[in-house]
Design a protein around this nucleic acid. Structure first.
Length: 336
RNA sequence: CGCGGGGUAGAGCAGUUGGCAGCUCGCCAGGCCCAUAACCUGGAGGUCGCCGGUUCGAGUCCGGCCCCCGCAA
């Protein structure tokens, strides 16, 4: 495909891409593949030590970028008055980008950068803003049992996911949706949404819609601690929590002195009452746990130090868990 | 040297102060039954992660190494 005798070759927009994790990759690749855009540089987080062995690992966006031989910048920070940061600003200005596209970068973008591109700095967010501003919109949608989710393309301002909306695309949340599956769907949808609306936006054909701050909600960054299961809650809520927090931050409880990760539970809720919340009983060769309302059947679990296994396998070696009671080790303060 | 758990039959586990290697499930064969994923009987299947040491004797005690996993980051 050459540009041999293109008579009306449309303008190629110069883009700076900013992103870090796997979630950002489909959008980056879509931009690179699209001839209407030229990715002039990619900004991503520095390589970080990962895992028990603390092996220095490049972020997924860096790995993806390297295949195309594009310039990669990995500043440790974007704000400040140091020489390094000022030099970065200079480099970005010299590129003279038409737009900056950010998706899941992990750091606040300062005004100095927001103002560099001709058409501003755009962000793709994994929720239907103004719902679920913040770091964990995907988990929040599944956890709360929302019927749908989606992605929002917006022009960034200095606030946290508060900028005016360029476009939104919706998606239905399946009744067996997990954080992982929705993550993957929205990552692809983000790429499609960007390609669909970015050209019109750059051509000035789209009117931006301000967000209604009254309807805004926050989905803060999650930690493992958030995955502690409160068995006094209704089974339906816990079932959604387990799905929402798979694979990150995961859900867990404690059996005696051991941490027990709950990997997956059956979507079928057991009608049952009377037992103490957290108490374990056998149900069809599997484990069931009494909740505040009804009970859950555990499908897959992992005892600390052990490999992940099915409830049946687990029961062969740890039959003595039947009759025990799972407890939350620390009283989790209600988050919402 | 960040903290901790673990490697024993195909799977999941037990193995007490060193003394013939066990349990549950699965698998194979036979039996019972109208029938069965149920029940009964029998059977196969293990270099106890690797190397070395102590000992009459090591899954077990000592030293070194490899691998898996939870936490923390």
């Amino acid at each position: 495909m050459g540009k041999t005798k293109t008579t009306r070759m449309p303008k190629t927009y110069k883009i700076i891409f900013i992103g870090t994790p796997e979630y950002s990759v489909p959008t980056l690749e879509a931009l690179i593949a699209d001839e209407r855009f030229k990715v002039a540089a990619v900004i991503t987080a520095p390589d970080a030590p990962v895992g028990r062995k603390q092996i220095l690992t490049p972020p997924p966006v860096k790995v993806a970028t390297q295949k195309f031989n594009l310039p990669i910048l990995q500043p440790s920070k974007l704000c400040g008055k140091d020489v390094a940061v000022q030099r970065l600003y200079g480099e970005l200005r010299d590129i003279k980008p038409d737009a900056i596209i950010t998706i899941a970068y992990g750091q606040i973008i300062p005004p100095e950068i927001l103002n560099i591109p001709k058409f501003g700095c755009l962000n793709l967010h994994a929720s239907l803003l103004p719902k679920y501003r913040g770091a964990s919109p995907i988990q929040a949608a599944v956890k709360n049992g929302d019927a749908q989710s989606g992605v929002t393309l917006m022009k960034m301002d200095e606030g946290l996911d508060t900028g005016p909306v360029i476009a939104q695309e919706k998606i239905t949340i399946a009744n067996n949706e997990t954080g992982e599956s929705l993550h993957d769907k929205l990552a692809k949808l983000s790429a499609q949404t960007l390609l669909k609306y970015l050209p019109d936006y750059l051509a000035g054909k789209i009117t931006l819609q301000p967000q209604d701050d009254i309807k805004a909600s926050l989905a803060p960054k999650l930690t493992r601690q958030n995955g502690c299961i409160d068995w006094t809650k209704p089974a339906v809520e816990i079932e959604r929590l387990v799905r929402a927090y798979y694979p990150w931050p995961g859900t867990w409880s404690t059996w005696d002195t051991h941490t027990l990760k709950i990997i997956s539970v059956s979507s079928k809720i057991l009608k049952s009452a009377g037992n103490q919340p957290g108490s374990i009983f056998k149900y069809n060769e599997k484990l069931a746990v009494q909740c505040g309302e009804n009970a859950l059947v555990i499908e897959t679990l992992q005892l600390e130090g052990k490999k992940l296994m099915s409830a049946e396998e687990f029961l062969r070696g740890y039959g003595n868990i039947v009759g025990a009671t799972l407890r939350a080790v620390s009283p989790t303060s209600p988050t919402k």
